[in-house]
């Protein structure tokens, strides 16, 4: 249950994830510098939010080709988990670890607000403590969070149940009004085919304490820790 939180130049949710994992969940956690490629001591790598490299080219474009991200496929192949939130999701798409892309918000403005997420797939390691149809409350904070995938990829995603979260109303209806950024079919988060790489635009680390308005973000990490606890170490060390 060893977490590593990656710091790229320009990352800013690193401290928040570190605090939630270390202080709220009391799990071992350390920072990983973007030039590090040795991930052998970790069970889960977190790619946090921020503006890696200023996002001056395309959100996540440069970080998607950084040494630490280039080490991820091997880490995933060995059974490691990856959670990318916000900029982390953008980076995972840029690195082709997840399909699709994140475009400029349809309103053409940055959006920081609370959103509701409908759980579509409760069988991933990140969501197995949830039930399908459950509604989570989690904030977003991004300018480029409009998910897009070509029709073929979208069909494949849907067929393999890789769409994990969709933006919805408090009552769980997937509507246009509940979609804060114009995402295709309200997609808020997806997993890879193996279910071990999760990318989502909302910030689970900002929904981890009641004083801050929601603890639903913890459910994702609890699910994951549950998986790790049962397996001892899934990396079979």
């Amino acid at each position: 249950m060893r977490f590593g939180v990656v710091i790229f130049p320009g990352t800013w949710s690193d401290c928040d994830f570190h605090y939630v994992i270390g202080e709220v969940l009391r799990q071992p956690v350390k920072y990983v510098w973007h030039r590090d490629t040795d991930l052998s001591e970790l069970d889960c790598v977190i790619l946090p939010g921020g503006f890696s490299y200023g996002d001056y080219l395309r959100a996540g474009a440069i970080a998607g080709r950084s040494p630490v991200v280039e080490a991820l496929p091997e880490f995933v192949a060995r059974g490691g988990f990856v959670l990318g939130s916000c900029n982390g999701f953008q980076i995972l798409c840029e690195a082709k670890l997840l399909p699709g892309a994140l475009l400029r918000n349809e309103c053409l403005q940055y959006r920081c607000q609370s959103t509701f997420l409908l759980v579509e797939n409760a069988e991933t390691p990140f969501t197995r403590g949830l039930r399908p149809g459950q509604v989570l409350k989690m904030p977003i904070s991004h300018g480029e969070g409009k998910y897009y995938a070509d029709p073929e990829s979208l069909r494949a995603l849907t067929a393999r149940n890789q769409i994990v979260f969709r933006y919805c109303t408090e009552a769980g209806e997937v509507t246009k009004a509940a979609n804060p950024n114009g995402s295709l079919e309200n997609v808020a988060g997806i997993v890879n085919e193996g279910g071990t790489v999760l990318g989502l635009m909302p910030h689970p680390e900002r929904a981890a304490e009641a004083a801050l308005g929601s603890t639903d973000g913890l459910l994702l990490l609890h699910s994951l820790i549950g998986v790790l606890v049962e397996d001892g170490s899934f990396l079979k060390r």
């Binding site: 939010g49 403005q109 940055y110 920081c112 607000q113 904070s141 910030h203 680390e205 900002r206 801050l212």
Partner: peptide
Amino acid sequence: VYRQYDHQVGINTLVLPGSDAAVLRIK
């Protein structure tokens, strides 16, 4: 205006914009 500003990074903001004053915890 304020939905265009990130008002939560740092996870300290206990009272968000829209009240008389913002309140932030000291971790």
